[in-house]
Design a protein around this nucleic acid. Structure first.
Length: 959
RNA sequence: GAGGGAAUGCCGGAGCGGUCAAACGGGCCAGGUUUAGGACCUGGUAGCUUAUGCUUACGGGGGUUCGAAUCCUCCUUCCCUCACCA
């Protein structure tokens, strides 16, 4: 039988619409809310990639309907935005008309895809009846102090001709124009206080069933960090400096203030003014080109700060690597223990003061209790051969270890002198070319077996170059102790005996000079010396707090959301500026503030070209007023649209709280990962705000989030008009049928992966669909074989859970297997055929409806009940079936392998399975066997041997 | 630099402690059908070899276990996100 895809698609789409198959009521059975991110209706229409995105949700939605849920599956348009306005500028078409046309076109295309949307609930954000509520929320935010205006440096994209939020700046470029540098401008802007919810936005993530990477991205973006605020006095003014490393306070040798800091001027002294101006000028000219590759640069401001820990006076520098609006915009620099500070200090010759010593405790000979020993200073020297690439290894005769040249420093001796002396004493070499310190002083602790005492060493490593091999005979006493050997420099890491600091020394030697950022013991830190630096963080904070110079704080990277845009096609901000009263909110009864149609596009903000709209009376004093001409960021519109779907036509309220309570939160939300830090954070913020207004009773917009992958063209490239690799749903539909394409795409890979379209590949799916059609027209209805029954039940079981977890790929495979088997049968029952068709329905809805009807049904398969499965009908393939039997089988097989065991413990889970017949098990092998039952918490497992016990499986422990 | 994810035949990808490595698709090879092509059907696609057989194989090294593609650990490589956040 041939199938006319175009014909049946039209037929069933018509029927679904006419019979309102997918329209839902706001009550009834258990609800399920499937949502795909609503699209921006562009003029170019939908391509196959879009179609696939929405199909992913459609499959889930249809499945949930058949499972008996009351499914809300709506669609709408995020219709405000720049492209419409740009089209207006380029083609002279009004954004409103452009949008209307695009929406109509999209809707037509959507409908021809046969997706299970309830079109009666469509929302369109460009409709005043929608954006009225954007304005209403704005007023509420204003009321609660969450919307505010401030003059600030903003991100400006020249191509968009408007301001961007921080989230919309990627890599210093505009998120829409990845070749356009974002500039900073000073403007008076409206902000939403997202920071008010920073902590909740951060902490809430842990509890959410969202993809790890999305949660990680959001965490990263919000950037919560615990630290200490330490007060430094700078020229008589208090600066609260944020740091996560209070333990390094004694190592602060300078301060760095951001070159962009607002209070910079006050810090610059007259003598330094010239240098500073020069520096700032240079920064400006560089940042345009390659701001990412900037070196750390700076200039001395002339001011000094007082370190509250020790009263020291330290210089304040101006640097290009400090972020102005994070923390205080000034940092305390500890060059010894922060790489950036280190680089900066080296460049400008500032002191590097060590306050943390790398600490090593010999694992093989750890210090013993009660055997204290006073610390002593020890030097180690890597001595290099004057000509060859070799170094000296001291091989100790009495103890089985090798070292570099090593020894204690004597009273009154400098470290260099000690090195010289030790080299001479141990090796006899007397002409040294250079001595170079390696890394920082260390702390090393071990138990010296031969002396029965603990050693605590202040260890210093040196790199020593000999100028020649002239040497004196060494003392007999030394000769007895060790042998001097030359070994390859490359093997430096292998030639050393059991001394734990080796790796640090070698790393420091090979990487050259750098800051030490790991853990260690405090040094040069007064009363905190020899304390572990991690413990010291808290101790020092408390100590400073007592002096009223510090407090523990939590800091966030997240900034407030700038929502003002200098463009036309957005939601007008409902504010009127009055000379007397300032910014006055438009009274609620006057909402919506509609966009005037009569404006001029081209230069500047179009809203300012309509004088009649612009000039109004102040609602407060009735004096002269001017409307706010900025509009809101379009992410405002998409932050709450999913709530409006629950009650889309309400003209009195934003929505009926009862309806939202029934439907929300969204159960499964599907959309691109690119929104992880924009739309998804904003809508979480909105939900929290609306919750605190008492309008909703949940904390997060969506229970589950799924990021679909992108559908690429056959060449593996992103589908685009310019590349000519786009695939249009209309064409596919005509050639293969939209259902065939759905089935094909479902079967390529997991829907969260990027996949490539393939004209060859779709043939395989066409073959399958034809096979199913042939089966339905040719098969003899009769009885099922056991094999068929088993396969059917197994398939129902698998496919049900696979659709739930978006494992569409495996589900299509199971369906192929099932239909393959059915096609081979002489006869099958009608129930079996129908069940198989039902499972096919979410993937191939039109074909399934058509065949459902062919088989003799009058109703819709889309509304039929999802088949149930019977575990007992699934054949035992050498396993399965009775768990008890299976476990006995398992155990016996294992026991045969471990024939020489004395005693065998068998663990089973869950608890109920303890009824495994012990005798039966033991008899087979003739061994002592004990069976334990284990529950989930590991109880009934006194010896902790059953860690590996898994439900339905036996775990064996052999003695 | 920080965080997240991944590595399995020619390719896309299943498998998530024992039954079982390579399901399922694509590609390729051979045979059948066919005037030919397409479509369709059958078999093959690590090696020995042609059998209801053995060997080698799940990025690499260690480990846990009676047993590891699967769990732990280190390393290598790749992808994504944020990156001077103190």
């Amino acid at each position: 039988m041939e199938i006319d895809f175009a014909k049946i698609e039209k037929k069933w789409q018509g029927k679904w619409e006419k019979e309102k198959v997918f329209q839902v009521k706001d009550s009834g059975a258990e609800k399920y809310y499937v949502l795909e991110m609503f699209p921006y209706p562009s003029g170019s229409g939908l391509h196959m990639g879009h179609a696939w995105n929405y199909t992913i949700g459609d499959i889930l939605s249809r499945f949930k309907i058949m499972q008996g849920f009351n499914v809300l599956h709506p669609m709408g348009y995020d219709a405000l935005g720049l492209p419409a306005e740009n089209a207006a500028i380029e083609k002279g078409e009004h954004p409103e008309d452009y949008t209307k046309k695009s929406v109509a076109n999209f809707t037509k295309q959507f409908k021809s895809l046969g997706i299970s949307y309830d079109w009666s609930r469509m929302v369109n954000s460009s409709d005043p009846s929608y954006y009225k509520w954007d304005q209403w929320i704005f007023l509420k935010m204003l009321e609660k102090g969450l919307a505010y205006q401030k003059e600030s440096e903003v991100n400006w994209c020249d191509k968009c001709n408007t301001v961007l939020a921080n989230e919309q700046v990627h890599d210093g470029k505009c998120w829409r124009h990845d070749k356009t540098d974002v500039e900073t401008r000073k403007l008076k802007q409206w902000f939403f206080k997202t920071t008010e919810y920073a902590d909740e936005l951060y902490e809430g993530l842990d509890k959410m069933d969202w993809p790890e990477r999305t949660k990680a991205m959001q965490k990263n973006w919000i950037g919560k960090s615990h630290g200490t605020e330490i007060d430094f006095e700078v020229e008589g003014k208090k600066w609260s400096i944020f740091t996560t490393r209070p333990d390094t306070i004694f190592g602060v040798t300078f301060m760095v203030v951001s070159a962009q800091h607002a209070g910079l001027d006050e810090l610059v002294t007259d003598e330094q003014r010239k240098d500073v101006d020069k520096f700032l000028k240079k920064l400006k000219s560089v940042s345009e080109k390659d701001s990412d590759k900037l070196d750390k640069e700076g200039v001395f401001s002339g001011s000094y700060a007082i370190n509250p820990a020790n009263g020291e006076k330290i210089p304040v520098w101006i640097g290009n690597f400090v972020v102005a609006d994070y923390g205080a915009g000034m940092v305390m620099a500890v060059p010894a223990h922060d790489q950036r500070d280190f680089d900066f200090a080296k460049k400008y010759g500032i002191e590097v003061r060590q306050v943390i010593a790398p600490y090593f405790c010999d694992k093989e000979c750890p210090p013993r209790e009660g055997k204290r020993h006073a610390p002593r200073t020890v030097v180690q020297a890597i001595v290099k051969h004057p000509k060859e690439n070799k170094i000296i290894q001291i091989q100790w005769k009495k103890f089985d270890w090798n070292t570099f040249v090593i020894g204690g420093a004597e009273e009154g001796e400098t470290l260099e002198e000690a090195v010289k002396r030790e080299v001479y004493e141990e090796t006899g070499y007397k002409n040294i070319k250079s001595i170079k310190k390696i890394g920082f002083e260390m702390r090393s602790e071990w138990y010296a077996l031969h002396k029965d005492e603990n050693r605590y060493a202040y260890m210093n490593a040196f790199f020593v170059e000999l100028s020649d091999l002239k040497k004196d005979e060494i003392a007999d006493e030394e000769k007895e102790k060790h042998v001097v050997a030359w070994v390859d420099f490359d093997k430096v890491r292998d030639i050393y005996g059991p001394v734990s600091e080796l790796n640090y020394i070698c790393d420091a030697l090979s990487s050259g000079e750098s800051a030490y950022t790991n853990e260690g013991k405090l040094v040069n830190s007064d009363e905190f010396n020899e304390m572990n630096n991690v413990d010291a963080k808290d101790k020092i904070t408390k100590w400073l707090a007592k002096k009223k110079a510090a407090k523990k704080v939590v800091n966030f990277k997240l900034r407030d959301w700038g929502v003002s845009r200098q463009r036309y096609w957005g939601t007008p901000i409902p504010v009127i500026h009055c000379e007397k009263c300032g910014a006055v909110p438009v009274p609620e009864k006057d909402l919506p503030v509609k966009l005037p149609k009569d404006v001029k596009f081209g230069k500047g903000n179009p809203l300012e070209t309509n004088e009649k709209w612009l000039n109004v009376k102040c609602p407060k004093c009735a004096g002269k007023g001017k409307r706010e001409s900025d509009t809101m960021d379009t992410f405002v519109n998409s932050s709450w649209y999913f709530l409006r779907y629950c009650d889309p036509n309400n003209s009195k309220k934003i929505f009926d709280a009862k309806k939202v309570k029934y439907w929300c939160p969204v159960d499964t939300y599907i959309g691109g990962a690119e929104h992880a830090c924009m739309h998804l954070i904003y809508s979480r913020f909105y939900v929290k705000f609306l919750r605190d207004l008492g309008l909703v009773d949940f904390d997060e917009p969506a229970v589950k989030l799924f990021h679909q992958g992108m559908l690429h063209g056959e060449d593996g490239e992103k589908m685009s008009k310019s590349k000519g690799n786009g695939v249009l749903p209309e064409e596919v539909s005509g050639k293969y049928g939209i259902d065939t394409a759905r089935f094909f795409l479902s079967g390529i890979a997991s829907p969260d992966k990027d996949i490539d379209w393939s004209n060859k590949g779709i043939n395989g799916s066409l073959r399958f669909v034809n096979k199913v059609v042939d089966l339905c027209s040719g098969v003899k209805i009769g009885k099922d074989s056991d094999e068929v029954l088993s396969k059917l039940n197994e398939t129902v079981k698998n496919v049900s859970s696979q659709i739930d977890t978006f494992d569409y790929r495996t589900a299509t495979i199971r369906l192929k297997e099932l239909f393959d088997l059915l096609a081979k049968q002489k006869e099958i029952s009608k129930v079996t055929l129908e069940s198989a068709l039902k499972m096919l329905a979410p993937f191939c809805p039109h074909v399934a409806e058509e065949l459902w009807e062919k088989v003799g049904n009058k109703d819709f398969i889309s509304k039929s009940n999802w088949p149930k499965f019977d575990e007992s009908k699934v054949a035992k393939k050498g396993q399965g079936g009775d768990l008890n039997e299976k476990i006995i089988e398992d155990v016996n097989r294992i026991l045969e392998k471990v024939a020489d065991a004395k005693k065998v413990y068998v663990y089973v889970m869950p608890f109920e399975l303890a009824k495994v017949d012990v005798k039966k098990v033991g008899k087979v092998v003739g061994k002592v066997v004990e069976v334990f039952a284990v529950n989930d918490s590991g109880k009934h497992d006194p010896e902790g041997k059953a860690k590996r016990a898994k439900p339905g499986k036996a775990s064996v422990y052999v003695e």
